[in-house]
């Protein structure tokens, strides 16, 4: 099993996005995922996932990527 931490975090955000998408507007999903990360993720995990935005094929699904980009914006880091 893969234990690259970056990959683990990408999988986690994708999973959160998948669970927050059904029956919701896209905007709600993006906001839901972003605030979930803000509320529950440790600082280092947030930094790490934001850094993933710089990797074009990091594996983030589209909605997950939008949510992470919003997280990056709110944290003052430049969005990719």
């Amino acid at each position: 099993m893969s234990h690259d931490q970056g990959q683990t975090l990408v999988n986690m955000v994708n999973q959160i996005a998948a669970n927050l998408s059904g029956g919701r507007e896209t905007a709600d999903t993006v906001e839901g995922v972003c605030s979930h990360l803000e509320k529950f993720w440790a600082r280092a995990m947030k930094q790490r996932i934001v850094a993933c935005l710089d990797e074009p094929d990091c594996g983030l699904e589209p909605l997950a990527r939008q949510a992470v980009a919003r997280l990056a914006e709110r944290r003052g880091a430049p969005a990719a």
Binding site: H3, Q5, T8, K39, F40, W41, A42, R43, A44, M45, K46
Partner: peptide
């Protein structure tokens, strides 16, 4: 003011 690591995150880290 930021959450810390959860157990599985601690293991990964």
């Amino acid at each position: 003011d930021e959450p810390g690591l959860r157990i599985p995150n601690m293991f990964d880290a």
